[in-house]
Design a binder for these strands. Structure first.
Length: 391
DNA sequence: TCTGGGGTCCTAGGACCC
DNA sequence: TCTGGGGTCCTAGGACCC
């Protein structure tokens, strides 16, 4: 079947390929409405329809096709609200296994160009193409070839930003979506960034935007020109320095492969609030088992176990405990989680979400065997030396 | 309107050690 | 008798990102 002609052509995005791409070695590749596009590819009858991936009693939108976005639907929006905005949307339950498999194909295509690929999530990655110029041509030529390759072999569209730094490349890809390609030449970085809203900066979400807005900061240029002391007082010193660097186009972070994972967690919002302790403990055990399985898959164990409890009123508490031993078995993780839960001393709680996590991760091979033995652990259980705040 | 699930990083205070 | 300063680890909460 001549499928390449059937690539869903939502509105074609901005295409800017002219200009000097010398020094623009960073590409940010972002698949368009990834989960939704994968679902539409699997069920072509959905082409042209508003598709929402997500849903559930208390669910949110994980991805929305561009036909759904026209109604104001966007990811992370409560599904109930999305359906009010777009009652004729087709709601599809997420199928993360398939998304992971397609994501692996995407990353393979990227790594065919260069090993310098840094995945950010299933549907996004940075590439540093400075080392493959002789092999594959200028950065813009590489970006064009990648977009063609995605369309031909995967029947999926992506948007690519080409720029001198990661941050600018990422902003560029977000400004040309969907199905776009945007080059930001080195000489034009500031004229590109400065008119944009300050919220495009990495780290400026709704909360950080508040003090900035109070200072009259609306655009990246406003922030760039503010005295550093003023920015520090508004957002703290670490954040201030980072934001002003980004605002002046300074972003020396290299493209590198992912760091090892630092934590593994599993949490779940129940369709209906949990109130009975037996139900709560059953859920903690299920989550502990999930965390344990993923630790085993990665041949890891952890030394710190934590829980998260979100009440019906959305108030959230977390508790963590660093154990004397490394753990990876369900029973050990659950024992610690249940102990932490009981230490909260809750009286008839209404709980909408429970979570379990493990951190301080270490390769199983590097952990002395006897430290994970059951006997040793259980003799400690419940009498773990505590520091800091009593629970 | 009613808020998922997977993560990372930062802050601030306290304990503890040298 | 009064009391420094640096460094590390631990914990709770929160902001942010996809």
């Amino acid at each position: 079947m001549g499928r390449s002609a059937d690539v869903p052509r939502a509105p074609r995005g901005i295409q800017r390929v002219d200009g000097d791409d010398t020094g623009c070695a960073i590409l940010h590749v972002d698949m368009d409405a990834f989960f939704a596009s994968v679902e539409i590819r699997r069920r072509p009858e959905l082409t042209g329809k508003p598709v929402i991936v997500g849903g559930g009693v208390r669910g949110v939108v994980a991805a929305a096709s561009y036909d759904a976005r026209r109604y104001g639907v966007h990811s992370a929006m409560p599904a109930s609200q999305a359906l009010r905005l777009c009652p004729n949307a087709v709601v599809v339950r997420p199928d993360h296994e398939t998304y992971r498999a397609v994501s692996a194909q995407v990353m393979t295509i990227l790594r065919d160009v260069t090993p310098a690929v840094e995945p950010l999530s299933l549907d996004e990655a940075f590439l540093d193409v400075s080392g493959v110029r002789r092999l594959f041509g200028r950065p813009v030529e590489i970006a064009i070839a990648l977009r063609n390759r995605m369309a031909e072999t995967l029947q999926l569209t992506c948007s690519i930003g080409v720029a001198p730094t990661k941050f600018v490349a990422k902003v560029a890809s977000s400004r040309c979506k969907p199905d776009g390609l945007l080059l930001v030449p080195a000489a034009e970085v500031l004229s590109f960034l400065h008119p944009l809203p300050v919220t495009v900066l990495w780290g400026v979400g709704t909360r950080t935007a508040e003090p900035l807005h109070r200072l009259g900061v609306r655009t990246v240029a406003d922030l760039a020109r503010l005295p550093p002391d003023t920015v520090r007082r508004a957002v703290g010193s670490a954040m201030a320095e980072q934001l002003q660097n980004l605002a002046w186009g300074r972003d020396p972070r290299p493209v590198h492969e992912r760091d090892p994972e630092k934590s593994i967690s599993s949490d779940h919002t129940s369709d209906h609030d949990l109130v009975r302790e037996a139900d709560i403990l059953r859920e903690l055990r299920r989550l502990s088992q999930d965390v344990s399985q993923r630790l085993h898959q990665r041949r890891l164990c952890g030394r710190t176990v934590g829980i998260k409890v979100r009440f019906a009123d959305f108030r959230t508490v977390t508790r963590v405990r660093t154990l004397p031993n490394w753990v990876d078995e369900t029973a050990h993780i659950f024992d610690a989680a249940a102990d932490l839960y009981r230490s909260l001393g809750l009286d008839r709680p209404r709980i909408r979400l429970l979570g379990v996590k493990c951190e301080h991760l270490q390769d199983q091979a590097q952990v002395p065997e006897q430290l994970t033995l059951d006997a040793e652990y259980s003799s400690n259980s419940g009498r773990i030396p505590r520091r800091g705040r009593p629970l």
